[in-house]
Amino acid sequence: MKIRKGFTLVELVIFLALLGIVLAIIFRVFYVGHNAFAAGSTQFQLQSDLRKAGDFITDELRYAEEIDIADSPDDDGYCYIFLEDSRIKYQYKDDIRDITDPIIANDNIFEIKRDSNGRNFLSINITGAMQGKSYNITTEVLLKNVSNLEPEAGKVIKYKKPVS
């Protein structure tokens, strides 16, 4: 057992154990980093999608005319914003566009409200869920060009854009 150069078995085993521990630490750091990034990008997508939908609905409906909650979208010349297959979509005649990805988790996103003076508000309540994360926004917009609409809730809203 007289050895001039090289490592003993014990030294090699200790080396491998230490290498294993160091690699485990490094792997852990990358794993946590990757998870944090994935969670962040999911949350970001949820938030930006819902914000986009909230802004779109607010901008479209504030000055809209002939607003009503409908059962289903149609190509009858009204504009429609509606919930279908967990997406919020927009339709005008045969032009259908997606406003959000398929992340919407609640059903009745629209509610028409009326105050004591007969002024109408549209209450918007959107919840998004994706890969275990969820996010919700609630807002109201004063409908300037309609009044005395019956309070009603639903997932399809039809309206006409104001004549400019």
């Binding site: 919700n136 609630t138 807002t139």
Partner: peptide
């Protein structure tokens, strides 16, 4: 990112109050 989500939600809630004031 969570913080900015909270900010967006707060802005929408404040806007809801503002719309009611406007009426």
């Amino acid at each position: 990112i969570s913080e900015s989500g909270g900010r967006t939600r707060a802005v929408y809630t404040a806007r809801k109050v503002a719309e009611n004031e406007l009426a």
